[in-house]
Computed example of a mutant assay.
Amino acid sequence: MTPILKALAVTALFLPMLMQSCDPKGGEAVALGVLMRERVVLTATANAIITELPVAEGHAVAEGDVLVQLEDAVQRANLQLARARLSEAEADLQRVRRGARAQEIAIAEARVRGARALYEEAETTLARNRRLLESGAITQARLDQDLARSLSSLAELTSAEQALAEIREGAREEDIQIAMAHVEAAEAEVAAERTRLEDLTIRASRGGLLDSLPWNLGERVPLGSPVAVLLTGERPHARIYIPEPARVGLAIGDPVTVRLDGTEAAFEGRLHWISQEPAFTPYYALSQDQRSRLVFLAEVGLPPEAAELPVGVPITATLP
């Protein structure tokens, strides 16, 4: 039998039972359903290969337990590179704040002394050649050269003195702020790369039961694909299908008696959610007689003694 024929057969059996269960002549109305728990779906944070599956399906897990490990070699290298950039930015900031070393100041002072000596020599030569020009011992061209050399030496001396003053004064406030901004940017980059690395380790966001691991070890999972499914919550709840004739008389908080197949035990629960839309065919497309076949999805909260009940078990709920 094909899956479609099977579905039609199940529907053919299921709907008459619902219709019979909600018949006012039959007394109490009942709804069929199944036990379920809250589902938490954890998805892949990157397009990567699964390298570890530490917990097997069906085992209990606590919040923070590692469920799936994705390949992280490239991301570890990215984090190491970001940390190196941070170290470089911190060293540059420290250098700017400390200013020049004593050796750098000594070198600048030596350059000033050298430039001053050259300037004084040029000035002495220029004064001597001016006297020689008057006696005709040298030409005007030679004196012009000495004058140019003197002016050049003065410029070199002025430049060396300004460089020494700048070194002694230290870094400007703007330079320090720029270096600090580089450090902050590098810190943010490290934090982002660290988060990306941590995201490659899929951990349980809540305690519960590991219900499913859709992918196998060694498979490459696409970004956003479910990689682990948890069943959480202190106890299961009953998901039932309320027949349309019984829907009007029900309200949130009404008591509902839930019974499991294979046991005589009954659990007194409370109706805590009812869907606003009916299942299957939209109600406005049905006649009055056909509308009795509609069902409304609902959930029933169970008492603490139902905590150990297995999920997936069919149940029968007696409606008030």
Results as ranks from 00 to 15, higher is better:
P3M: 05
I4T: 10
A9M: 07
P16A: 11
L18K: 06
Q20E: 13
Q20V: 13
C22Q: 08
D23A: 04
K25S: 13
G26M: 11
L32G: 14
V34R: 11
V34F: 01
M36F: 09
V40R: 02
V41T: 14
V41L: 00
T43L: 02
N47C: 06
A48W: 02
I49E: 01
I50E: 00
I50D: 00
L53S: 02
P54N: 00
G58H: 03
G58M: 01
A60N: 07
A62D: 14
G64D: 00
D65A: 09
Q69S: 13
A77H: 09
Q80H: 08
L81V: 13
R83S: 11
A89D: 11
A91G: 09
D92H: 06
R111N: 15
R113M: 14
A115D: 11
A117F: 11
E123L: 15
E123K: 10
L126P: 13
L126E: 15
R128C: 12
R130P: 14
I138P: 08
I138C: 04
T139Q: 05
Q140P: 06
A141N: 12
R149M: 15
S152W: 12
L157Y: 14
E161H: 08
L164C: 05
I167S: 11
R168W: 04
E169V: 13
A171R: 05
R172F: 02
E173F: 05
M180S: 05
M180D: 02
M180H: 05
A186E: 00
A188K: 05
E189M: 05
A191N: 02
A191M: 02
A192E: 07
T195C: 04
R196M: 01
D199C: 02
L200V: 09
T201R: 09
I202R: 07
I202V: 15
R203G: 06
N216H: 10
L217M: 07
L217Y: 05
G218I: 10
E219K: 10
L223Y: 10
P226H: 04
V227E: 00
V227S: 00
V227Y: 00
A228N: 04
A228V: 09
V229Q: 02
V229S: 02
L230E: 03
G233E: 01
H237M: 10
H237E: 06
P243V: 12
G253W: 03
D261A: 10
F267S: 08
H272F: 15
W273T: 13
I274D: 00
E277N: 11
Y284K: 09
A285L: 15
L286R: 13
S292P: 05
A298Q: 12
E299G: 06
A307S: 13
E308S: 13
L309M: 03
L309Y: 02
V311Y: 01
A317W: 00
